[in-house]
Design a protein around this nucleic acid. Sequence first.
DNA 1: CACTAAACCTGGGAGC
DNA 2: TGCTCCCAGGTTTAGT
Length: 284
Amino acid sequence: MPELPEVEIIRRGLEKYIVGKTIVGVEVRLEKIFIGQTHQIVGARIEAIRRFGKGLVIDLSNGYSITAHVKMTGQFVYVGGETQGFHPKLVTYTHLPDKHTHVIFSLSNSSGGVSRLFYNDIRQFGWLRVVRAEDVLSQAFFKSLGPEPFRDLTIKYFRKVLASSNMPIKPLLMDQRKISGIGNIYANDALYLSRIDPRRKSSSLTKVEIGCLFRAILEVLEVGLKYGGASEMNYIHVDGTQGEYQKHFLVYGQGDKACRRCGGMVKKIKQAGRGTFYCPNCQI
DNA sequence: CACTAAACCTGGGAGC
DNA sequence: TGCTCCCAGGTTTAGT
């Protein structure tokens, strides 16, 4: 379920553990996951980690970058001296690689110590792609992304997008071409927080409702970040620990449970093929 | 162009 | 124990 907060937490983890290290080897165990040639990245130093929407970019010292998308079940897990053996929340990844490990990077630090970064992905939907640094943003995925919260998404643009769409508001929030970073969990929770029915036609929202929803989006993403993301399915941090936001869901995953605001029954419906949770009593 | 539906995959849970 | 069926959701592609 990685959305903006989860991918940002992964970005920070990669920044902490792999920036400054040199790639000394790459083992690709599942060809379709890794698009590119391993010789393009072996020998290069990792310079920076960037994020655009739910996509990651690992910039290397030789003019290449590795772009990545973890989709729903991808994991980057670093195993080295810095992460070994003392985390109370560690989800035990000392047994890596396992059958879901598709790419293994061997890294070395300036004093020659070797560590490893594993890319695991149960459902194999994610991808890693080697591209020239200058071509990253012209790659189809990155090119298609709309503005994102906390960066270039403005209330003015948000009003314009909503006003010009006949879609229900919830699928619109998840449309990465219009706004990037929001997925199913945070779309559900932002609409709940702003008391808006997810089925409402986007263009029917009033100026006040739009302002309220805009603030709710920033709020839920911030809370998600604060708790280290939602480890509902397979998402974990680069050091192998779990996020906690799944313990603080407002309405996501609460089907047939009591609404925490009014006590009414939370309803689950399907919109554009995705599960939608809302309280029919307090979301109007 | 807008929009929908299926495809990509595996694991976990329900029902039998 | 083990079978079938369904569900999870972020793109990506095919189709209307």
